[in-house]
Write a protein that binds this DNA or RNA. Structure first.
Length: 314
DNA sequence: TAGATTTGACCTCT
DNA sequence: AGAGGTCAAATCTA
């Protein structure tokens, strides 16, 4: 698993970074053992079992993330299949009387946005709906625009932008704007209250159900079997979102909180932001090898996993 | 048939 | 004027 944590605010580094690094190292160690187990090796006596091992990894990652950004969470879930269409008739577009801009959207605040770089667009428990795609100047990859699917129902203003990294195509930069106000979040938040404080968010090794979603736990063959995970609040297990709603991507993980120059965001994702999560940690582990689960049409890239060794704290 | 995605056009900001 | 963000009709899938 790879966690590259960056922080726009170059400040918040040292102590926390060090601790996070340590925790992640520990987590990695556990993951390595887990990998060995999954590959058939016998379980070292020192490790109590898959359940404990998974729990340990989750805890380490959870704490590391908490340390890295004091409760910032993010994630993503997203994209979807593919379709085609033809140009809309002029008449239609002329419909112009668009109520545009009246919407708060990501258009104009001054609040910071939460940026996350992941090997894959990840699932954060929220249900996102793609509403646009745009070629960005000086960028080889288009930027995809998603908004919370509950926007209509709950007026949730959360949106996110996903763009493949220029430097490392295997990474996706996900920028979150706005805060979830949908019921999904409420459920997640409620669950969070039951968890201990430090578990503001957790690396979720699983998708909700074995059958549907994609496993959040990813395996990278070129990393010596490193696992990638999705940051999700542990507590969100059984929260409002149904497993079926999960996106099909996930993983990697670089979190960056930054303040986009001209890109306002109504709010930064809160810990509870990442929600609707997952089942018992081990459950997904059992089927994470099922590549069929990696269904995201837009971002499926088996090689797109980050290097745990790349942990880079700013 | 409902819900989600695609994609050209439109709108706002710089 | 250009770039980026969003809208919404058309289209597709379940």
């Amino acid at each position: 698993m790879t966690l590259i944590a960056t922080t726009g605010a170059t400040a918040a580094a040292s102590p926390a970074a060090s601790m996070a690094s340590e925790l992640m190292a520990q987590g990695r160690e556990s993951a390595a053992v887990l990998e060995a187990l999954l590959q058939g090796a016998s379980l070292p006596p020192a490790h109590g079992g898959l359940q404990l091992l998974a729990a340990e990894i989750l805890r380490c990652c959870d704490r590391a993330l908490a340390v890295m950004h004091g409760g910032e969470a993010e994630s993503s879930a997203g994209g979807a299949g593919g379709m085609k269409r033809k140009a809309a008739p002029a008449a239609a577009t002329a419909l112009a009387t668009r109520k545009r801009r009246a919407i708060g959207g990501s258009g104009g605040g001054a609040a910071p946005a939460t940026r996350v770089e992941k090997a894959r667009t990840s699932e954060d428990g929220f249900l996102w709906r793609k509403y646009g795609q745009k070629e960005i100047k000086n960028s080889k990859h288009p930027r995809l625009y998603f908004r919370c699917s509950y926007k209509e129902d709950d007026g949730c203003k959360a949106t996110r932008h996903v763009q493949q990294s220029e430097d490392d195509p295997s990474l996706y930069v996900i920028t979150y704007f706005g805060e979830h106000t949908c019921s999904c979040k409420s459920a997640a938040a409620a669950a969070v209250d039951d968890e201990e404080n430090l578990q503001q968010f957790v690396i979720n090794f699983g998708s909700a159900t074995a059958g549907s979603g994609s496993p959040s736990l990813l395996y990278s063959s070129d990393n010596g079997g490193i696992l990638s995970e999705t940051a999700t609040p542990l507590s969100s297990l059984q929260s409002g979102c149904s497993p079926d709603e999960y996106g099909e991507e996930d993983s990697g993980v670089i979190m960056t909180k930054e303040e986009p120059a001209s890109r306002p965001a109504s709010a930064v994702s809160s810990p509870a932001d990442v929600s609707c999560a997952s089942p018992p940690a081990m459950e997904p582990l059992l089927d994470y090898m099922n590549w069929d689960n990696f269904g995201d049409s837009s971002f499926v890239d088996i090689d797109a996993f980050m290097n745990f060794d790349e942990i880079d704290l700013f």
